[in-house]
């Protein structure tokens, strides 16, 4: 059980948007810090979300579950909220005595689904990132800033993006995305 998504809207009621913006309050997330090359860690990821260990900056997905590369010693595991406790137990079992840190961060983050339109163009207004599909292909995770806050996002093959940021600034992130989705100001970029 969790609180409802209670974000307000910053643009005029009924204003058209160039993309769809939706918060995903039911997304479960586990931070796992460990030696990503170790067999135990790979086993733990497999046990928790059923995917292989993601390569540098990649995300490995299996249905509603995924593992995203965050840094050389950290992956973010994505899974339904209801499965978090079981996954944490599975990680502990797989890691055994190996040095690691696994923590439920489902409530520490806010996740947005961005779709149905020029998602790359909207994000290009807020992130200092080369968002050309050649440079940031589907399945690559980019951690960067969204205007003044930290975020991470990745695209799927259909051009939709999943964006993760901190919970306390969810409203700010939502406001930024809404303002940047002005259908009258879609830039001819990225290419």
């Amino acid at each position: 059980m969790s609180e409802p998504a209670t974000l307000t809207t910053v643009t005029p009621a009924g204003a058209a948007r160039a993309i769809a913006i939706a918060r995903l309050p039911e997304q479960g997330m586990i931070m796992l810090r460990a030696d990503l090359g170790a067999a135990a860690t790979k086993k733990a990821v497999k046990a928790a979300v059923g995917t292989a260990m993601p390569a540098l900056r990649r995300i490995e997905a299996a249905g509603a579950r995924a593992a995203a590369w965050m840094s050389p010693d950290e992956v973010l595991l994505l899974l339904p909220r209801a499965e978090v406790d079981a996954a944490l137990a599975a990680i502990a079992k797989a890691m055994g005595t190996a040095h690691h840190l696994a923590a439920d961060v489902s409530d520490a983050r806010a996740v947005f689904a961005l779709s149905d339109g020029p998602v790359r163009a909207v994000l290009a207004k807020l992130c200092p990132v080369d968002l050309s599909p050649d440079r940031l292909p589907p399945g690559e995770v980019r951690r960067t800033r969204l205007a003044q806050i930290a975020c991470a996002f990745w695209f799927d093959a259909a051009g939709a993006a999943t964006l993760v940021t901190f919970r306390s600034v969810a409203q700010y992130a939502h406001d930024l995305l809404e303002l940047s989705a002005d259908p009258a100001a879609v830039p001819p970029f990225p290419r």
């Binding site: 810090r33 923590a103 409530d107 520490a108 901190f166």
Partner: peptide
């Protein structure tokens, strides 16, 4: 051998 995690907002 130390890992840290900022769980402030969790």
């Amino acid at each position: 051998k130390v890992y840290t995690a900022n769980l402030t907002e969790q």
